[in-house]
Write a protein that binds this DNA or RNA. Structure first.
Lengths: 187, 187
DNA sequence: GACATCTTGTACCGAAAGGTACAATCTAGT
DNA sequence: ACTAGATTGTACCTTTCGGTACAAGATGTC
């Protein structure tokens, strides 16, 4: 069937628009421009309109992180899956050139509308990383602290990179966090 | 003269609106609602409209940080002025309940319009903190790294606090950073 | 009280917003 | 080839957007 594929294909494009302009700044005209789909098709795929598109995009992002980052952290060997996280994050955010949609939504007035999805994304990330650290021999307090610090730091690095237009900021931040997760004693 | 005072009085109110809804999400009707000023007055004080209001708000935020945080870091004794920074930041951001306007602007499509002001705010913060650390005996590399990490971490803490609606996140993050700036060797 | 200067409310503008209606078209299965 | 369903383009709706025009009202100065 072609229907499902087309809807799925269009979500990443819509995601880019939301990422670039935020929820309020994203207009249907910008979406039709980016996707090449008219309002007819758009409302056919997303009867709930803009809000349903945003929800689909959030779910899509969440699914990517669950598959590529969280699940490996929870189920795989700790050190390789943490190494994989660094690669995945750097790649996904294009070394800081790309912004985190969930983080951007968290900051503006949009938050309340998608509160559950937004909170979930971060809480699960922290929990998964903490889990990997625990299995790597960290004690509970330090693991929780470090996991929270790293996830929060990635968001901060994205803000600062975008603010200064200096990709090096993102690279330096990731390198610092990577080093820190290799020396539990220092925390 | 009453004119200047009134304009100055209204900027913090407008700032709150921008902080809550972002640039795109802030409409003139929301501003008139918050300030009690009609469009006539608003355009009298800010002939450039919404963009001039945003610019005035950014300048106002910048001036606050310059006066309360950056200048003390540059000119005062390092340790007391860093201690003052922690208090000022926690107070200003209301323990994470309040979002950083500059960070929020950096993330959405608004960034390009105010690029210079946004970059400046962060670059000067990092430079001032680095300066204080240098005068506190840190070596150049570690001071630059730590300053960048702290400023970036505060932004991340705001994102995460707002995302999870859990103020404790902000408090924990500030405590971690404070501790880290007291033990240069660990970096 | 007269006068010039601020200050404000009201009415209005064109453009764009999100959304709806629906007929025309395409596609798959038989 | 026929038909039911999925898909799409077009036209249109209401509301709100940022912004303008301008006359009326407030205000301080002399």
């Amino acid at each position: 069937m072609r229907t499902l594929n087309e809807r799925a294909d269009v979500i990443p494009l819509i995601a880019e628009v939301f990422r670039e302009f935020g929820f309020e700044g994203t207009s249907l005209s910008r979406i039709t421009e980016k996707t090449g789909l008219g309002k007819g098709s758009l409302y056919h795929f997303f009867p709930g309109g803009k809000e349903e598109m945003a929800r689909a995009v959030l779910a899509h992002v969440d699914a990517w992180f669950e598959r590529e980052i969280y699940a490996p952290l929870r189920d795989g060997a700790p050190e390789p899956s943490i190494a994989r996280m660094w690669l995945g994050v750097d790649d996904y955010f294009r070394s800081g050139r790309r912004v985190c949609l969930v983080g951007a939504f968290a900051l503006d007035g949009t938050r309340d509308r998608f509160a559950a999805a937004i909170a979930d994304y971060f809480i699960r990330w922290i929990a998964a990383l903490r889990d990997a650290l625990l299995r790597d021999g960290w004690d509970a307090g330090a693991a929780g602290d470090a996991a929270e610090e790293v996830v929060l730091g990635i968001q901060g690095a994205l803000v600062l990179t975008r603010a200064t237009q200096d990709e090096a900021v993102f690279g330096r931040a990731l390198a610092r966090f990577r080093r820190r997760l290799q020396q539990p004693a220092a925390i």
